[in-house]
Design a binder for these strands. Structure first.
Lengths: 127, 127
DNA sequence: GTCATATATATGTTCATAGCATATATAAGC
DNA sequence: GCTTATATATGCTATGAACATATATATGAC
């Protein structure tokens, strides 16, 4: 989220505004899995379209997948066929699909909040 | 942020999507202070327009104000005149104003990310 | 007079999360 | 053999939200 990557030991001592959207990665992964079952490494690549750029933390992806499985929003099974190390193939459950719809509402609300800020900001600072 | 208010001891065990936007309260308070110096209690009321509804936590407001003062983004002085308990009147500094502009950019980016989600969501689920 | 409420600020505690680091293993390219 | 890409996993720390509680001053009700 932070664009300059200059944090001192991730202490957030710099004033750069992060405004991280907590757990936003979850609905993103759920939506990708609804489109097509996938394993973590593949998701990691696809997540860039949601602003999780270049250096996304793999730990974040894998840990969220395991957590969502524990919650019953996704299911997984090991895939050993093919080349390379074994992959854990995830697919979304119906509970996971329900959650996507709930997130869509939350996200609409959040957009409204952010847009209210920008509107006010522009009223004050633009001309 | 959570609409139903049914958390068990704030353990976030329910599946309600929060998607809280971390520290978003800070640029909101800075913008309000840019408009007009104010004390915490007054800000608390005005913050509802940014989606910090009804039962906003006073601790969050006051702690963020003190933190922002420590960072040099706002300044305060006690006001004893008038009725009622003493108020700490805050005003924004030039560093605080700079930060508003930085946040405006972050917020634009976040809107884009959220809108990408919604666009994809609608492509998949709407008709 | 005292009781509840509104105004105003402050601190304590807990939990989940992001962000960072590191470890492991398989396979392909050179 | 060495490096890199693929693939998953865990450990650690700082932070922030959400909750609770404490304090004090003034006002209106009864």
């Amino acid at each position: 989220m932070c664009s300059h990557g200059k944090h001192d030991h991730h202490k957030h001592t710099c004033e750069c505004p992060g405004g991280r959207m907590e757990r936003f990665i979850q609905p993103c992964m759920l939506l990708l899995l609804y489109e097509k079952p996938a394993h973590g490494y593949r998701l990691m690549e696809k997540l860039s379209q949601f602003g999780y750029e270049d250096n996304i933390d793999p730990g974040m992806v894998y840990r969220n997948l395991r957590k969502m499985e524990k919650e019953g929003w996704v299911e997984s099974e090991w895939k050993t066929e093919g080349t390379g190390p074994a992959k854990r193939l995830y697919k979304i459950t119906s509970e996971g699909e329900d959650l996507i719809h709930a997130w869509a509402i939350t996200i609409q609300n959040n957009i409204k909040r952010l847009q209210h800020f920008l509107k006010k900001y522009r009223e004050i600072f633009e001309n």
